[in-house]
Design a binder for these strands. Structure first.
Lengths: 202, 202
DNA sequence: TGTACATCAGTGAACGCGCGTTCACTGATGTAC
DNA sequence: TGTACATCAGTGAACGCGCGTTCACTGATGTAC
């Protein structure tokens, strides 16, 4: 064994992280393998020792957000007793729609940074994207009592609001709109989490 | 004047419509000028007689959705007395989140088909995208009484729900999710339009 | 303990291809006479 | 009425460039003896 066994895994992880950032900034097609490898401190040629294709790396980069994201980092830095599921959900809404995240594309969730890119990609990136959605739904669904028959639907609503608000805010050029769309989404999402009754048509 | 005066304008409109469809299908960077011109029944070389750059065409294609879209067409085909603003808004929600539209990428709103593409584009496409958002907000805002201080905020909520639900539905691979995210968005949007009181945190 | 070796992560040149844009040209059209 | 002409929308070859992927090679490392 010429290199320490964890050596290749570390390099691989470095490439994925570099790719995640570069894809967030410029999208899938606009980033070259050359640039990703350079950003990871490597050169073009080694790429295919780690991934079978650019698209396979794309799927890995999307999926990697589940385990490494600003929300997890915030929780890891959190002191004191662990927050309740409901408090956790509130924190996620606030963070997701915050000015800090809007202004920092590198940290964007793939749901915000890459929706139309992934929609046109192959099955592997789309499956990875689906996993990220399900992960987010799960955090919100747990915020409601286990006997709440509408918990799943409410979680879906909150995800819709967070994603819709951020996708529009980050694309639109009108500053007022960039703030208001997120403010409306935040207020409604927090209202749903607070348990306000939602009358709903069937 | 060698050609009828409206000749060039017609060709230009044909190029924009071809571009709109191709961009919806494959995104901005993945479509070549060659393909757009072929789709419009023309050849590569003439492109720069009509547009200064590919990006300028992109902005035109996004903006063109405001005047030519499935909703306008449905209204034009509508018989009988003109629907009330509220009925109009309900129709838009239903159509926007419908299975028919989800399955027909050519007819997608740019907010759904191109969010991350446009976000990374220049000012002109982003301004065009902003106009489409404002247009949609306007349709919903008019659905509420003029003295409703929250009309604007409610319109923003509905747009967030429609865009969030569709963006996720069209990217995700899990069929249940593709249906449920839109169903949740639809129910909530219609509930807001029906005037159910929304208690909201400040 | 020291040395030759096998391994394989990483290198960088090269291949084949397609793109946005430019440009000299063509030819269908309406107009001047 | 008929013909020569000026216009300019449309053509297609060419330019310069960058990409995803392949491949023969390098050289740092742990191991065998």
């Amino acid at each position: 064994v010429p290199y320490p066994p964890e050596h290749k895994a570390k390099t691989r992880a470095r490439i994925i992280e570099a790719a995640r950032v570069m894809f967030n900034r410029h999208g899938f097609e606009q980033v070259s393998i050359d640039e990703i490898m350079k950003h990871a401190g490597l050169t073009r040629g080694g790429f295919y020792h780690h991934f079978p294709s650019k698209e396979a790396l794309y799927a890995e980069a999307v999926r990697s957000f589940t385990s490494c994201n600003p929300f997890s980092r915030k929780l890891a830095a959190h002191e004191g007793p662990p927050p309740s599921p409901r408090a956790l959900a509130r924190m996620l809404v606030e963070l997701y729609l915050s000015d800090d995240i809007l202004g920092d594309v590198d940290q964007h969730c793939p749901l915000i940074a890459l929706p139309s890119d992934v929609a046109r990609a192959g099955l592997k990136p789309r499956n990875a994207y689906t996993k990220v959605v399900q992960n987010m739904l799960h955090v919100f669904a747990r915020a409601f009592p286990t006997d709440d028959a509408r918990a799943e639907q409410k979680a879906q609503l909150i995800v819709n609001l967070c994603v819709g608000g951020m996708v529009i805010a980050r694309t639109v050029t009108e500053p007022a709109l960039r703030t208001e769309m997120r403010a409306a989404a935040r207020a409604q999402a927090l209202s749903i989490l607070a348990g306000n009754t939602q009358r709903t048509r069937r």
